[in-house]
Write a protein that binds this DNA or RNA. Sequence first.
DNA 1: TCAGTGTTTAGATGAACGTCGAAACACGGT
DNA 2: ACCGTGTTTCGACGTTCATCTAAACACTGA
Lengths: 121, 121
Amino acid sequence: MSTATIGPEAPATARPLPVLNDCCTPTSAMSDDDASLLAGMFKALADPARVKILSMLLNADEVCACDFSASIGKTAATTSHHLKLLRDAGLITGDRRGTWVYYRVIPERLTAIRDALTLGQ
Amino acid sequence: MSTATIGPEAPATARPLPVLNDCCTPTSAMSDDDASLLAGMFKALADPARVKILSMLLNADEVCACDFSASIGKTAATTSHHLKLLRDAGLITGDRRGTWVYYRVIPERLTAIRDALTLGQ
DNA sequence: TCAGTGTTTAGATGAACGTCGAAACACGGT
DNA sequence: ACCGTGTTTCGACGTTCATCTAAACACTGA
């Protein structure tokens, strides 16, 4: 991920700083892009079915697509939908080998999430 | 029956599990409760505004509620709504001191999320 | 080539979410 | 006690999401 430097995208119009209170020293948030990217990864995990899928992949480094459906108790179509969301978020990857599709996690992306949640950086 | 000729028939190992394919060794997912709890925490972070709020709290160990609204570019009502979601998820806490309310993260909960994302346990 | 099985996509539907303005609540100062 | 300001709740609106069935696609084996 890009360096999460502080500093908003300069809304150069009008005021350089909004009205501030004297309650505390102002703190700036991360950029819109970084926040959206991170929120997208969190959103990909914001469902019990997808958390279960990830947990299976964290325990065994490779899982057949046919295994997920029974374990999470959803239809094959719904399961495939969840797998696609996790793929689109860049958290997992799957490759077809003949009849079956095997999925695995992308460790780097999980590391990115963990780092974003780490205090003090 | 085991005295039959060698052949391509299935191995007679008894399996009490539901219909399984022979594509892989079955992997079990985490419990419903654990998955729901984790998904709830991820859902609390599945929005750029809330990610920004958390990033501010990770950089400064205490932030006044009045600071968030300007930094994330949302109305006070919307900001309060997001703060409530983060509170309900147990990720942050806020206490009123006179006029202002000061928020801070709950480090243990962030650690729980990080641990859940860690490979190999 | 065809039939059977595993996987994904398309369309539809009800629930949950993000956002706002307006109103209510909490507190400090006059 | 009242007024002004910071914060939260309420009600409403449009959007997004999770889920299913049905259909399409991918591959194997005969």
